Simulated assay, not measured.
Amino acid sequence: METAVHSRGIRKENPALHRILRSILWILLILLTVFTLIPFVWMISSSLKLDREVFAFPMRWIPENFHWENYSLIWQKVPLVTYFKNTAFIAIVVTLLQTLTSSFAAYAFAKLNFRGRDVLFLCYIGTIAVPWQAYMLPQFIMMRSIGLYDTLWAMVVLQAFSAFGVFLMRQFYRSIPTELCEAARLDGLSEYGIWARIMLPLSKAAIATLVIFTFVNTWNDYMGPMIYLTRDINKTVQVGLRRFIQENSSDYHLIMAASLCSLLPVSVVFLCLQRYFIEGIATSGLKG
């Protein structure tokens, strides 16, 4: 006992050691951040160069002349505006639907008592472990049979429900005291009212987390649009980028400019919701 107290006293009396360890941690974090940002900085730099300057040696991180016209040329090579509109439509609609369906189902699994609730929840969550390739063909046949093949609504219908979203929201809902729901029921509030007026306002962090995950995954989806969307008028940004690369395989400066444009919407969404996202990561999935 005396040894432990003495050891704590020694640790408290060594602020210099604490500062050194903290400085080392900060240095490591800064180096890791720089290492992570290097590819993005190189992409931005390359997008403002001529093609012959991209792989010039020694590498020039800051171009001698900034060629902003690269960003106007990419819109003339392929119909990127159409690709962006299609992707924005799919990403926004899917994000709204997944947020609605996931939060609504999560409320039932977290706050309502009915027979087979936990078994049904485990079965639904178990679908996360099933690889997409296992049911890709049945999904394709189903979409074609109901007439949604080669339409944007095929991508919306396939991604409107998310087992991960239900799990994320349920874990957060379970951290909200059940007494709030019981008090609302005594006041005559319906289950729909409890969900809309109590659960949703208290779940901003979890909703923001789900919105970011859903929007990013939908925006970056490549295989789904590649399979279900064949006409050029229906293609998305990721498929359009592939076509752009095939047609301009030697124009690396234009490829970097197009890639940077495709990243901007995702970056804006994350930066707007990052505060809630960090809070949601810290709270969701830890309780229950």
Rank of each mutant, 00 (worst) to 15 (best):
V78T: 09
A258D: 06
L25R: 13
H67D: 06
F167E: 02
W75T: 02
I233V: 15
W153S: 08
I281P: 01
F244D: 03
Y222H: 10
F104N: 04
G116K: 02
L263F: 11
Y276L: 10
Y83I: 05
H6L: 14
F164L: 14
P201Y: 02
T101R: 01
S145W: 14
F114Q: 10
M169S: 07
V41G: 03
V269W: 01
A282I: 15
Q246A: 12
E69P: 00
L229P: 02
F84D: 03
R11A: 15
F89H: 08
G116V: 09
S262K: 06
A91G: 06
I176E: 02
I20M: 12
A282L: 14
I207F: 08
L286W: 11
S45F: 07
T283H: 13
I10E: 15
F172V: 09
Y222Q: 06
I207Q: 01
H18K: 13
A196I: 11
V81P: 03
S259C: 12
M155K: 00
P265E: 10
N113I: 15
Y252R: 08
L37F: 15
P265Q: 11
V216K: 01
R22F: 07
T178C: 07
S7H: 13
P63V: 02
S284K: 05
A257M: 00
F84P: 01
W61N: 06
M256H: 08
Y222F: 15
Q139L: 11
L254W: 05
A183T: 10
V239P: 03
R52F: 13
I74T: 07
V237F: 02
V269S: 07
F114T: 05
I233C: 04
N234V: 03
Y228C: 06
L120F: 15
L180F: 15
K235F: 00
L25S: 12
D251E: 13
G280M: 11
L210P: 00
S203Q: 14
T3A: 15
G285E: 09
V268Y: 07
N70D: 05
S249V: 09
L28Y: 15
L112D: 12
E69N: 09
R60G: 10
F215M: 04
S250L: 09
G116D: 02
E2T: 12
R174G: 10
V94E: 03
I24E: 03
K77L: 00
A184V: 01
R231E: 10
S250T: 10
F55W: 12
L122G: 11
M169Y: 09
F40M: 12
F215L: 03
D221T: 04
E2S: 14
